[in-house]
């Protein structure tokens, strides 16, 4: 399977498509902030991310099919957009969580949820197992309506590849 074949062939956006889109930006290696990363590259009529952000850091505009753009000067990494996006297309990343690891905060709607401190398998856009991460936080707010927001630290070398966690086995 050719990972570069693109969104309409493999189901997942290729890195090339992401880098060419208006929404996707990956925080740089010198950046110490946790920032929102959006992978919503098709113009569908949808704007809850814009409405959810308390800092008004995400812009879609009056044409609700516009691709969302995050202003990293305004983004505080609060993660409200992560749960608000109906397409689960937003996560937060920080390259420099600490010396060895990066941070990802992503939406998760499966059972069971992991526990804080648990070692979990992290996956890429194709569901391939990439590395092991450590669960830092599992947020289940009522306002997020059953979309859990999970924070995991993972090895820096997989910074761009990792975007989610492999589902845990049900009993």
């Amino acid at each position: 399977m050719d990972k570069n074949a693109g969104l309409k062939i493999t189901g997942a956006p290729s890195l090339e498509e992401l880098h060419a889109s208006a929404c996707y930006r990956l925080p740089s290696k010198d950046c110490n902030k946790t920032l929102a990363v959006i992978e919503c590259i098709e113009g569908i009529p949808c704007n809850p991310c814009e409405t959810a952000c308390p800092q008004h850091a995400i812009t879609i505009g009056s044409e609700i099919t516009n691709i969302p753009v995050v202003d990293w000067d305004l983004c505080t990494g609060c993660g409200l957009c992560v749960a608000a996006c109906p397409g689960l297309a937003i996560y937060l990343k920080n390259y420099n969580y600490n010396e060895e690891t990066s941070l990802i905060t992503f939406p998760f709607e499966y059972y069971p949820l992991p526990e804080v401190g648990q070692s979990v398998t992290m996956a890429n856009r194709f569901g391939e197992e990439i590395c092991v991460g450590t669960v830092l936080k599992v947020l289940t707010l009522k306002r997020n309506d059953k979309t859990a927001v999970i924070s995991v630290s993972y090895p820096k070398e997989f910074f761009e590849d990792v975007i989610t966690m492999k589902r845990l086995k049900r009993e």
């Binding site: 309409k8 189901g11 992978e39 297309a89």
Partner: peptide
């Protein structure tokens, strides 16, 4: 929609 296929793919 790409966001739907992406959820399933990952």
């Amino acid at each position: 929609y790409g966001v739907h296929t992406a959820k399933v793919r990952r």
